[in-house]
Design a protein around this nucleic acid. Structure first.
Lengths: 355, 355
DNA sequence: TTGTAAGCGTTATCAA
DNA sequence: TTGATAACGCTTACAA
């Protein structure tokens, strides 16, 4: 028989000590305790201070943040709205952001849209109700009103990865144009000449737009110097395997003697392309080259290894949180754009001659 | 030119209406408004009710949950503590849980341990401070005190995937024993005879323990009927590639004429095994069979496809949240254990003769 | 330097 | 059925 559990009875829940308890125990007023908590450095007799300190320790007191929030209007809470927690990019950012928030004494309230962007307003409303002091938004950004709501409540907002149409807010993101150039150039240098840019449906999502635009201009810029370089684009929809297969077959056909290469605009698409390659029985590298945005834990192990452009996800999250906290603390600069470079990780999928 | 934005100046943040505003507007007392909000069905003249209703709408009033929490001691907040948000399993569960919570009108406060289980206490403390009404814990469970803290505060707790040593709480998890038997039997039926169970360092983590134990007993139970069946186990540590390589070489050596198969105890391990296979230049299926717990988006595309045992992650998350909410609402049954079955997804990695 | 008291936005108790 | 009023736990003028 296990040792008796001393807190067996759930009927007698442990009561948290309040500031009044501490005051009583230390023989001082609530105000004094509060001062000890908030303005320790100034105005305090060492004698009183230590009495308070002892009482706090004895009662294991910690202030009730809800009461604090109510009084001060500040909650030490940050709202994080994510289009889709399932997206590894979002998670990676989340992780970076969470770290910074915790260190700065903020807690994260999470609202996942489950890819239903119509709920963005709802999310922001729920979160403001809880007095979050600011928002990190990693959403599609199609509901302009939603994010504007946040700003209307006077809460600072940081946008991650996706801009909201004409919203004035800090923006933290991969340098999409640079990343695409980096990858496309690599493909070209590896000998691929007929390029296909595959993206999720663009749908006015800023990052997708930017990446596609960068691809197009890379092609037109490089066509002068690189004879035989051609490029086209394809939007791949979730269920539509046939469309993608057809696009890939088209790619090889157009390529003729030249080497065909795919640039996939994010990890979701990369996985779809990998699936298509499996269906078609083609090998990465030899049959079709590939470089994709987003480096994942599995990138090295698919086929000969998938060449990818790693986003500094952790850094993005940390910066987003950092920016936001600066704003919360009252920094009043015009909106900033922070663009971070991607890093190319060449692997077997962009090598045309199998080793 | 876009229509003028009426709330351009951030210096004049929008003020939320309070219950007092509503009362004034409707010409009633705060108490009446509060009653309208909380006990709508009973005690209310239709006239007054409609006046309040109108005022609420006019002012776009919604109650301040912090104030509510302060008064009622209930916050409509649920604390989710996760060992590692990076773990896809955790994310999947998170997603399921979040859905249910939102539907029930709860918001999730997230605390990520970043695999530093010493911070579990800290997490629980921070979250209780915010008056969360209950906890979903997906942590290593080595810090028994931490979780007990939660219970001490009288908050219900649901454990996901990992039990906490002798904690009396609801527990939601994969049926580890069943899942391991399912996979191991599949390996045997596919002809593999020298089996290696690879796990993360067991370290007293309940799910790892259970899976390993199930593997061992599967082997001893089946050895009678399956001539030549042998099994061993290996704990793979994060950086230790050499150890794993050696273990795999050992496996093939021991196998001799028989077919060697790996059972990997979760997705993290599966990835390590995939890395090792790449280093060794071996092919899944033909050289070494593999079945692993956790089906991921990339499982089908590594090598010939990785056979795996899918956990009902979403369902786990939903159940966890559901259980918790029942408890919060006052349900007072003895602790429940909910075990869900895994589903085998056979792929190429458990086929010894390449097609 | 410390204490008193008011008030943050609610809900709950009591009268009316 | 409705309205004052007192909390909830905290911070902050203002007084001492």
């Amino acid at each position: 028989m296990p040792t008796k559990n001393p807190k067996q009875s759930p009927a007698v829940p442990f009561e948290r000590a309040t500031i009044a308890d501490v005051a009583r125990q230390a023989g001082v007023s609530k105000a004094t305790v509060s001062r000890f908590l908030n303005h320790r450095e100034t105005l305090l007799t060492t004698d009183i201070a230590s009495r308070v300190e002892v009482a706090i320790a004895a009662l294991a007191y910690s202030p009730n943040p809800m009461a604090r929030a109510l009084k001060r209007g500040r909650s030490r809470l940050i709202g994080l709205v994510v289009a889709d927690v399932t997206n590894p990019f979002s998670v990676a950012v989340l992780r970076g952001a969470e770290k910074v928030c915790q260190q700065a004494g903020y807690l994260l309230m999470l609202f996942n849209l489950g890819n239903d962007s119509s709920r963005e307003s709802e999310a922001i409303k729920a979160l403001t109700a809880y007095q979050v002091e600011g928002f990190i938004l990693n959403t599609l950004g199609r509901d302009a009103g939603a994010a504007a709501d946040a700003a209307r409540y006077g809460k600072p907002v940081v946008l991650v990865d996706r801009r909201h149409h004409d919203m004035q807010a800090d923006f933290v993101s991969l340098d999409n144009a640079g990343a695409v150039r980096l990858g496309a150039r690599h493909l070209v240098e590896a000998g691929y000449r007929e390029l296909l840019f595959v993206s999720e449906p663009i749908n006015d999502v800023s990052s997708r737009l930017e990446r596609e635009a960068a691809f197009r201009s890379f092609i037109s810029d490089s066509a002068v110097d690189v004879p035989g370089l051609r490029g086209s684009t394809f939007e791949s929809t979730a269920g539509d395997t046939e469309g993608l297969d057809k696009a890939l077959r088209g790619l090889r056909q157009r390529a003729g003697e030249r080497l065909p290469g795919v640039f996939s605009s994010n990890a979701v698409v990369t996985l779809r392309v990998a699936a298509a390659m499996a269906r078609l029985g083609w090998r990465f590298g030899a049959d079709v080259g590939l470089v994709g945005v987003d480096d994942t834990e599995w990138s090295p192990y698919i086929g000969p290894g998938l060449s990818s452009i790693a986003q500094p996800t952790d850094e993005l999250g940390r910066l987003a949180a950092g920016c936001l906290i600066e704003r919360i603390k009252g920094m009043d600069l015009p909106p900033r754009q922070i663009l971070l470079s991607g890093r190319l990780l060449p692997r077997g999928s962009s090598v045309s001659t199998p080793t």
